[in-house]
């Protein structure tokens, strides 16, 4: 019954990808770089599907697994999006479905379907920097953090990356004092992000381990988040990604919670 806590939030990394890449002069404006990275990471195509699985390891080396399929549709580029996440593993969350209507600048609308009770439960917008389905990923890592929530400074432009320092506008709402992002100059994919606490100590790292071109969009196929304090980590793999399937808005409704849309979920 309390599976919904386990499945705390939305998974959007389905779409870590980019528009066509052009060799161009280095950009100077940190805000413009971050905006572009946001589109590349979370808004590839007009819609998309992906299968995903997580391997969660705690500091003692104990493992848990999660597997699910994600459908995404953008209402507007860089703006509102809808997600449907259908879990297939582990057994105790199998067929649990999660629906999110992401509204940058506002609270998201979120629903959870618990198949054992045939219950469509609406869940309140929670802290976005807490564990997503028991992994080391946060809700915000996968659905995207509003670009307006941090101020951005371009620290360095090297041969391959823009190095950007991000400082929260509201420091009380987050557990970090700042984070540094390494954004690929060609693809605009943030390939490494490191978080620092109030003492300037590095305690958390998110990194892309592999990516591929899918229908012209650079797409993450493997990433990892490391909790440097506890020693735990979660590896996330994506497969069977497709973009621009032509999904309708109606796919993201109560109907799909009670009867997941096989037309879009199957490979």
């Amino acid at each position: 019954m309390r599976k919904f806590n386990l499945i705390k939030a939305l998974l959007a990394v389905v779409s870590l990808s980019t528009a066509g890449t052009l060799q161009a002069a280095d950009l100077q404006d940190a805000d413009a770089i971050v905006e572009r990275a946001n589109l590349v990471s979370y808004y590839a195509g007009d819609d998309g599907r992906s299968e995903a699985r997580m391997l969660i390891k705690d500091a003692q080396g104990r493992e848990q697994k999660r597997q699910f399929t994600i459908l995404r549709r953008d209402r507007s580029e860089g703006g509102e999006q809808d997600f449907l996440v259908v879990f297939s593993r582990p057994a105790d969350v199998r067929n649990t479905v999660f629906l999110v209507s992401k509204k940058p600048g506002n609270d998201d609308d979120r629903w959870l379907y618990l198949p054992g009770l045939d219950l469509v439960k609406r869940i309140s917008a929670g802290d976005k920097r807490t564990s997503f389905v028991g992994s080391h990923y946060f809700y915000e890592d996968v659905s995207g953090r509003g670009t307006e929530e941090d101020s951005h400074v371009l620290l360095e432009t090297n041969a391959t990356h823009y190095v950007i320092e991000n400082t929260p506008v509201d420091a009380s709402s987050v557990e970090f004092s700042k984070y540094i992002a390494w954004i690929n100059k060609d693809t605009f994919l943030p390939e490494k992000i490191e978080y620092q606490d109030d003492n300037g100590a590095l305690y958390r790292r998110v990194e892309v381990l592999a990516s591929a071109d899918v229908q012209g969009h650079i797409t993450v196929t493997k990433s990892r988040v490391s909790d440097l304090r506890s020693g735990g980590q979660t590896t996330l793999e994506f497969r069977f990604q497709k973009y621009d399937l032509g999904m309708e808005q109606a796919v993201f409704s109560e109907r799909s919670l009670r009867k997941p849309p096989r037309e879009w979920l199957k490979r």
Partner: peptide, 13 residues
């Protein structure tokens, strides 16, 4: 009241 801890492995309700 619902509280989850230990990476969501412990749920107190």
């Amino acid at each position: 009241l619902t509280y989850s801890a230990m990476q969501d492995n412990l749920i107190l309700s």
